[in-house]
Amino acid sequence: MPVFSDPTNFDAYVSGFLWILKLTGASALLALVLGVLLAGMRVSPVPVLRWFGAAWVNIFRNTPLTLIIFFCYFGLYATLSITLSDDLILNNFWLGVVGLSVYTAAFVCEALRSGINTVPAGQAEAARAIGLTFSQTLRIVVLPQAGRAVIAPLGSVLIALCKNTTIVGTIGLLEASNVMKQLINDNGDQVILIFLVFAGTFAAVLIPVGYFFGWLANRLAVKR
């Protein structure tokens, strides 16, 4: 593998995938928190909250991610001068995380909401009947069961998120796909090899992730 035996190229490859990991990790965490809040809003008895949750999902789920990332860069940063870090690279990273999170949160919310529908109405009734408030009922009884019911779909959302992080390359972050493009530019004779290594790395990580979530879904399934 002549391209990758050059230490500079190999380091670029490693750091490209490290960015992918960091983008995925930070966005997954933020999207999960946001998605849980949004799902709570969508089933809440307060109309304004329901409206807000629905608006969020409809806007971000139906806007191409590329546009959202561009908006973060050209809108939030270039036009509105919102900076998330003094370091230019980190600033791009966080702009990317914001875009990925608001987008992915819409999918997390919808996955959870379909999970909430699998929880029998009697569960929430019993919770209310012993005196739990609405938010306690949601947090302690409904969401934990809904979450377990949608572990496999949430796994798919995570896998999609991981692949989607490559879009942050378009606003200048040297993540894996950007590194790949550079390597291809500099090594026109080894395009197929470079492509296979990068694609293979994604697959090598994501295939086990998929199986892990499948296993987890089985293990944590709520027996009724």
């Binding site: 569960q123 019993a126 005196g131 009884v141 069961q145």
Partner: peptide, 15 residues
């Protein structure tokens, strides 16, 4: 509600 216990036909124990 915490002062009024309720027992349902379908038990509704937290699964």
């Amino acid at each position: 509600r915490s002062d009024v216990g309720m027992v349902f036909q379908s038990f509704n124990l937290f699964a």
